[in-house]
Amino acid sequence: MKRAVTISVNGVSHATGVEPRTLLVHFLREHLNLTGTHVGCDTSNCGACTVWLDGMAVKSCTVLAVQADGSEVTTIEGVSANGELHPMQRAFHETHGLQCGYCTPGMVMAAIKLLEANPDPSDAEIRRGLEGNLCRCTGYENIVAAVRAAASGVTV
Protein backbone atom coordinates (compact mmCIF):
# COMPACT_ATOMS: atom_id res chain seq x y z
CA MET A 1 0.00 0.00 0.00
CA LYS A 2 1.37 3.37 -0.98
CA ARG A 3 1.98 6.01 1.60
CA ALA A 4 1.68 9.75 1.00
CA VAL A 5 4.92 11.70 1.32
CA THR A 6 5.98 15.26 0.65
CA ILE A 7 9.67 15.54 -0.09
CA SER A 8 11.41 18.69 -1.26
CA VAL A 9 14.16 17.91 -3.75
CA ASN A 10 16.49 20.66 -4.93
CA GLY A 11 13.94 23.23 -3.77
CA VAL A 12 10.95 21.66 -5.53
CA SER A 13 8.28 20.06 -3.36
CA HIS A 14 6.98 16.67 -4.49
CA ALA A 15 3.78 15.34 -2.94
CA THR A 16 3.26 11.77 -4.05
CA GLY A 17 2.69 8.20 -2.90
CA VAL A 18 5.47 5.66 -2.42
CA GLU A 19 5.64 2.05 -1.38
CA PRO A 20 7.24 1.96 2.09
CA ARG A 21 10.09 -0.20 0.79
CA THR A 22 11.06 2.39 -1.83
CA LEU A 23 14.62 3.52 -1.16
CA LEU A 24 15.33 7.22 -1.36
CA VAL A 25 17.80 6.64 -4.20
CA HIS A 26 15.14 4.91 -6.28
CA PHE A 27 12.66 7.65 -5.50
CA LEU A 28 15.15 10.20 -6.83
CA ARG A 29 16.23 8.23 -9.89
CA GLU A 30 13.04 6.50 -10.94
CA HIS A 31 10.22 8.70 -9.68
CA LEU A 32 11.91 12.06 -10.30
CA ASN A 33 14.33 11.06 -13.08
CA LEU A 34 17.21 12.63 -11.18
CA THR A 35 19.79 10.10 -12.34
CA GLY A 36 22.87 12.03 -11.22
CA THR A 37 22.69 10.14 -7.94
CA HIS A 38 24.20 6.73 -8.65
CA VAL A 39 23.75 3.26 -7.24
CA GLY A 40 27.19 1.71 -6.90
CA CYS A 41 27.46 -1.10 -4.39
CA ASP A 42 23.91 -1.01 -3.04
CA THR A 43 25.29 -2.23 0.30
CA SER A 44 25.87 1.09 2.09
CA ASN A 45 29.59 1.10 1.37
CA CYS A 46 30.52 2.99 -1.77
CA GLY A 47 28.82 6.34 -1.27
CA ALA A 48 27.97 6.89 -4.98
CA CYS A 49 24.40 7.52 -3.80
CA THR A 50 25.36 10.29 -1.37
CA VAL A 51 22.84 13.15 -1.16
CA TRP A 52 22.09 15.75 1.48
CA LEU A 53 19.12 15.02 3.70
CA ASP A 54 18.20 18.14 5.67
CA GLY A 55 21.72 19.38 5.08
CA MET A 56 23.59 16.20 6.05
CA ALA A 57 25.43 13.84 3.74
CA VAL A 58 23.69 10.45 3.75
CA LYS A 59 23.73 7.30 1.63
CA SER A 60 20.39 7.39 -0.14
CA CYS A 61 20.49 3.62 -0.77
CA THR A 62 20.13 3.17 3.00
CA VAL A 63 17.26 5.58 3.63
CA LEU A 64 13.63 4.79 2.89
CA ALA A 65 11.78 7.46 0.97
CA VAL A 66 9.14 7.44 3.73
CA GLN A 67 11.88 8.36 6.22
CA ALA A 68 12.52 11.48 4.13
CA ASP A 69 8.88 12.59 4.32
CA GLY A 70 8.84 16.29 5.22
CA SER A 71 12.56 16.64 4.57
CA GLU A 72 14.64 18.62 2.15
CA VAL A 73 16.89 16.63 -0.16
CA THR A 74 19.68 18.04 -2.31
CA THR A 75 21.16 15.97 -5.10
CA ILE A 76 24.13 16.60 -7.39
CA GLU A 77 21.70 18.28 -9.80
CA GLY A 78 20.96 20.83 -7.08
CA VAL A 79 24.45 22.06 -6.19
CA SER A 80 25.12 24.16 -9.27
CA ALA A 81 23.36 27.45 -9.84
CA ASN A 82 22.52 29.24 -13.11
CA GLY A 83 24.42 26.74 -15.20
CA GLU A 84 27.67 27.43 -13.29
CA LEU A 85 29.47 24.48 -11.80
CA HIS A 86 29.80 24.46 -8.03
CA PRO A 87 33.43 25.26 -7.07
CA MET A 88 33.84 21.65 -5.93
CA GLN A 89 32.62 20.34 -9.29
CA ARG A 90 34.99 22.73 -11.06
CA ALA A 91 37.88 21.59 -8.87
CA PHE A 92 37.19 17.92 -9.72
CA HIS A 93 37.09 18.88 -13.39
CA GLU A 94 40.26 20.94 -13.37
CA THR A 95 42.40 18.62 -11.25
CA HIS A 96 41.23 15.45 -13.03
CA GLY A 97 39.57 14.16 -9.89
CA LEU A 98 37.74 11.52 -11.88
CA GLN A 99 38.21 8.97 -14.58
CA CYS A 100 35.02 7.00 -15.25
CA GLY A 101 33.02 9.46 -13.19
CA TYR A 102 30.71 6.94 -11.58
CA CYS A 103 31.64 7.82 -7.99
CA THR A 104 31.94 11.54 -8.68
CA PRO A 105 28.45 12.76 -7.75
CA GLY A 106 28.76 11.11 -4.34
CA MET A 107 32.33 12.32 -3.92
CA VAL A 108 31.30 15.91 -4.67
CA MET A 109 28.33 15.77 -2.29
CA ALA A 110 30.49 14.39 0.53
CA ALA A 111 33.40 16.71 -0.21
CA ILE A 112 31.28 19.87 -0.04
CA LYS A 113 30.08 18.82 3.42
CA LEU A 114 33.64 17.95 4.41
CA LEU A 115 34.74 21.54 3.68
CA GLU A 116 31.70 23.00 5.43
CA ALA A 117 32.79 21.22 8.61
CA ASN A 118 36.50 21.79 8.11
CA PRO A 119 37.33 24.59 5.61
CA ASP A 120 41.07 23.93 5.62
CA PRO A 121 41.62 20.19 5.96
CA SER A 122 44.93 18.37 5.79
CA ASP A 123 45.31 15.61 3.21
CA ALA A 124 44.81 13.06 5.99
CA GLU A 125 41.61 14.81 7.05
CA ILE A 126 40.37 14.81 3.45
CA ARG A 127 41.05 11.09 3.13
CA ARG A 128 39.35 10.35 6.42
CA GLY A 129 36.43 12.63 5.54
CA LEU A 130 35.87 10.75 2.28
CA GLU A 131 36.13 7.29 3.86
CA GLY A 132 32.52 6.67 2.94
CA ASN A 133 33.14 7.13 -0.78
CA LEU A 134 34.93 4.54 -2.88
CA CYS A 135 36.64 5.20 -6.21
CA ARG A 136 37.99 2.30 -8.28
CA CYS A 137 39.81 4.43 -10.90
CA THR A 138 41.85 7.25 -9.51
CA GLY A 139 43.72 5.86 -6.54
CA TYR A 140 42.23 8.90 -4.77
CA GLU A 141 45.28 11.10 -5.39
CA ASN A 142 43.52 13.56 -7.67
CA ILE A 143 40.34 13.45 -5.63
CA VAL A 144 42.31 14.65 -2.62
CA ALA A 145 43.95 17.25 -4.86
CA ALA A 146 40.52 18.42 -6.03
CA VAL A 147 39.24 18.89 -2.50
CA ARG A 148 42.45 20.68 -1.57
CA ALA A 149 42.06 22.96 -4.61
CA ALA A 150 38.45 23.71 -3.74
CA ALA A 151 39.48 24.49 -0.15
CA SER A 152 42.15 26.92 -1.23
CA GLY A 153 39.93 28.52 -3.84
CA VAL A 154 42.73 28.01 -6.34
CA THR A 155 41.77 26.42 -9.61
CA VAL A 156 44.07 25.82 -12.55
Binding site: M56, K59, L114, G129, E131, G132
Partner: peptide
Amino acid sequence: IGDLQVRNR
Protein backbone atom coordinates in the same frame (compact mmCIF):
# COMPACT_ATOMS: atom_id res chain seq x y z
CA ILE B 1 32.06 4.08 13.44
CA GLY B 2 31.57 3.44 9.72
CA ASP B 3 32.05 6.67 7.82
CA LEU B 4 30.71 10.23 7.79
CA GLN B 5 27.45 9.36 6.06
CA VAL B 6 26.85 6.34 8.30
CA ARG B 7 27.49 8.41 11.43
CA ASN B 8 24.92 10.95 10.24
CA ARG B 9 22.18 8.30 10.29
